[in-house]
């Protein structure tokens, strides 16, 4: 009988853990698919349907190292636009990206999409993080 209780408890624990993971996964998928739509309507014309950019004019979005190194700044680039030199895959780009006009939730969604597409695998970037990072924009 004691044996049975232990197994039941274990199973319950596993279920709870699984449900929790599932919740996170659903949250991620929600951000990702909403972000894909934002990307297609607001970013794709310039950055391309595969995030490939345009020659030496517009940078590609598949430099995971750049995304990681500038992670808390990404939301600021979207909010305020980006001007000046940036180095992507060892090449310098100095074009001007206009401010996106996206809301904080949309920026979180599109960042989640970009940092998990085109070969990037960085995970969820949620609204909480976006709001915190926005406060620290230079």
């Amino acid at each position: 009988m004691r044996y049975f209780v232990v197994i039941a408890l274990l199973l319950t624990g596993l279920c709870a853990l699984y449900a929790c993971q599932n919740e996170q996964e659903i949250e991620f998928k929600r951000y990702f698919s909403a972000g894909q739509l934002v990307y297609q309507t607001r970013c794709q014309n310039c950055h391309g349907n595969e995030g490939q950019g345009l020659a030496a004019l517009i940078p590609p979005l598949n430099d995971a190292e750049f995304l990681r190194n500038n992670h808390s700044q990404l939301v600021c680039y979207l909010q305020n636009g980006l001007k000046g030199d940036i180095i992507i895959h060892n090449s310098t780009y100095n074009g001007h990206m206009p401010a996106s006009g996206l809301s904080p939730i949309e920026t979180a969604q599109v960042i989640t999409y970009v940092q998990n597409s085109f070969g990037n695998q960085i995970g969820l970037y949620d609204l909480k993080q976006a709001e915190a990072d926005l406060k620290k924009c230079k």
Partner: peptide, 15 residues
């Protein structure tokens, strides 16, 4: 050259 909307995709295709 400073076109933020449709020019990049136009010239990606023109390439």
């Amino acid at each position: 050259t400073s076109c933020p909307s449709i020019c990049p995709i136009m010239h990606r295709n023109m390439l």
